[in-house]
Amino acid sequence: MELIERYIYAVTHRLPQSQREDIAKELRGLIEDMLEERGHEGQVTEKQVEEVLLELGDPRKLADKYRGTKRYLIGPELFDHYLMVLKIALIATGVVIGATFVIQVMLDPSSILESFISLIVSTVNGIPMAFGWTTFGFAVIQFVGAKQLNVNLQEKKSWNPSDLPVVPDPKGRVKRGDAIAGIVFYTIFIAIFGVSNEYFGVWFFEDGKFHNVIPFFNEDLYGYYFLFIVLMFGFGIIKECLKLIYGRWTMKLVIFTLIVNVISGIGLLFVIAEPAIWNPNFMSQLVESGLVVAQSETYNVISFIWGKVTYWLFILWLFALVWDVIDGYIRVRRSKRSE
């Protein structure tokens, strides 16, 4: 009878391939047995079949019982992490799109309408893309790692009260907002340097329209400093992620931060030793553009600032890296003391 086959299909197509045939055979036998018990042997009417199927109930529920587990794309054990990463991804995407729009408008105010259209287009494209890739990534982790996670959960059964983490002192707690802001900041900078490094400089306008850029960086060494910046900011992102994962300052986290910052610091020292990263013709290009008159007072001031800034920027950055570690260490000490 067709109705029976339809019912069996409705159950089995929701089940793993390997079990379908066996379950179908068993269900068919069951339905025939149930019909037979009602004395409908030989001739069965559609109504009688319906009665039996109604007794067996909704095929979806029956399939759920066979499966034994609920189905989901991202399970409850991953969902918190998923939400957090999703938030970061969406914020970063939004900020990059917004910044692109602002830059475009500044470069060419007259075509603001086109910029606005491309803002909408990249919002419509970019936001679902960030959403989609994050979800896809987590779905893969869920799919691949489901067994692993089960093992972990079983291991957790031998849980001990001494495993409980100490309630972190407010001073020792990692501020999630700060860490997320850090990740967003690094992402934006990588995006800006990666996509539009040529716009990173002094903008030169002529008749209210964007004309030229005097770049801060030496364009011949573009590949060199791009790699350096990606590495530096990439490590920064890893560091902020670690802070988010740990949630509070611990000695381990301080050591991680130390390692990451030492690597960044070594990178920085390389750059200081290689001042060629800066545009060597910056001052003469400024003069050529007509913004500054050579040897005037303004020229001297800018020249002085340019020389100092390119040098002190690295020193300050180096100092920030060192402070990052010291600050972490102090926070660990403080939260330990108040225990």
């Binding site: 079990q19 379950i23 068993e26 269900l27 069951l30 149930m34 007794e55 067996l56 109930g57 529920k61 029956l62 019982k65 066979y66 034994g68």
Partner: peptide
Amino acid sequence: EPGTLYPLLRR
């Protein structure tokens, strides 16, 4: 219910 028993047997 058969709809409960059959999946249970399999499990």
